[in-house]
Each structure stands twice: as structure tokens, then as C-alpha cells.
Amino acid sequence: MMAIASEQQTVDLREPSGWRRTKNQIATVGMWIAFVVMLVPLGFVLFTVIAKGASAITWQFLTNSTIPVNVLPVTYGGVGPAVVGTLIITGFASLIAIPLGVLGGVYINEYGGNHLLARVINFFADVMTGVPSIIMGLFIFTIWVLHFGYSGLAGSFALACLMLPIVIRSTYEMLRLVPNSLREASYALGATKARVTVTVTLPAAIGGIVSGALLAVARAAGETAPLVFTILVTQTTNANLFSGANTALSTLIFQNATQPYTGAQARAWGSALTLIAIAFILMIVARLVTARFARYDH
């Protein structure tokens, strides 16, 4: 097009049409589809568990002793021992795995440098993350249960093996994100390395570390395979972690859900909802705790 020299030419600032705009639309639609596809199974799982499990939930269901898997309807028996078992077994597993895992992550990132030991731990944490949970159960069965018998403690060990690499990796990744300028500021005031780590680096990363630890706890609480080999089963509450067979919600779900009886199946759904509720409460508590730690990062 010929423009007259004296006239100022208007600049075209409109969005260029054509392929670029089309690409944007395709990508946007694609993201929405991915979002919905991801949300549907998640929502469906929650909906199903609530729909089938809510009717089973009563105070008596949550606290009563379990009964042998049989034809009795869901109003008989409860999941009290399994709730207690899940809480103490997962709790003790967390007590082992979280401190060890955080220390491991701190070692790799803050102290290990390029040392062989740090690289070896990092490598094995990576490998262990991929080990199937049933292997952990068999491992503890072989080295512990065969010698000392079934107990909640054995279950805790198995779950701790599962949690440890997750906690190490997440701690390590979070510490890597802490800017070096913060560490330097602390060193420049005459802080020792331990002081820097405890008072500056760890607090700066605490939000992410708690999230990572929590993911590990939630995963462990839902694990069935490592417990099947390590805690056996019991009908009454066994608050003693260190001796005697124990039970957990996940194994209870497994036993009941594989039965043809409607009562047992209803018990399985009720247990499933209870387990989800426990994980949910745990998440909320951890979020509150993290928010308190992170109230100065903005």
C-alpha cells in the first residue's frame, strides 16, 4: 500500500490474528481440559467415599472394637482399634522418619558439599523413593518380625522406611531454594554454621519442609502393603506400640472390602472416609502451623 509521504502512518497495534492467536486458544482449551480431567476422578473418589461411607459413621462406629469379618451388618462393631492403630503406628513412623529425614536433607545441602557420602545418600534417597511399599513390608518382616514378632512398632519401621526418602528429598529441595545471601548475612554477624542452619536456613525453608513431611505422613497413613506383613490383625484396641498384633484403617479396609458381605463392605467405606478425614485434619493443622512459621515472608 502506498502512503502519502506527508501524512503520518498509523501504527497497527492490534493483536496479530492467525496462527499465534489460534495457538493461544488451543493451549487455553487444552489447559481447561487437563484441569477438568484431573478434577473429575478426584471429585468422584471423594464423592463416592462420602456417599457410601457417611452412613456408616457414628460415634459407636469410630470407637467400638472391630469384629471378625462376617455377615453382620455395619451397625455391629466398629473401627476404634484401627483408628488408634493408624494414629500410633503412623505417628511413631513420623517420629522416626521426619527428624532423620530433615537431618539427612540438611546434611546433603548444608554440610555434605561434594563429599562422596552426601552424593551416596542423595542417590539412595532417590532410588528408595521408587521402591514399592510392599518391598519395605517384606524387608521389615525379614529383619524384624521373624525375630521379634508382629507389632505396631514393626509397622512403624516399615512406614518410616517409606517416608524417609520423601522427607530427605523434599527437605533438600527446599533448602536449595534458600538464597545464599541470607546465610551470608548470618555468617557476617559471627554465627557458626550450625547457628546459621538452625536460626536462618531452616526457618526460611520451614514451610516447604512441613509440606513435604506432611505428604510423607499422608502417604504412610494410607499404605496397606507394608502393614500387612508387619502388624497382623487384632479385634481389640492395642495401645501398646511395642508388643502384640495391631491393626490399622488401611488393612481393615483391605480385609473388609474383599468380602462379599454388604456389612463388611459398608465397614470398608466407613473406614475409608475415616482415613480421609484424618488425613484432611492433619493437612489443615499443618497448614496452620506453617502459616504461623511463615508469617514474616512477604
Partner: peptide, 21 residues
């Protein structure tokens, strides 16, 4: 080095306050 840095402080190029009050 810790004893040295307690006597000889440093202010950095980029302001680097701690994420604390």
C-alpha cells in the same frame, strides 16, 4: 573465622534482611 566476623561486620550489595520481624 567466626571470631573474626564478630568484630568485622559486613553490609552487602543487595539488602538482605532475614524473613523475621
Amino acid at each position: 573465622p567466626t571470631a573474626v566476623r564478630r568484630r568485622i561486620g559486613m553490609v552487602f550489595q543487595k539488602p538482605n534482611p532475614f524473613p523475621k520481624s
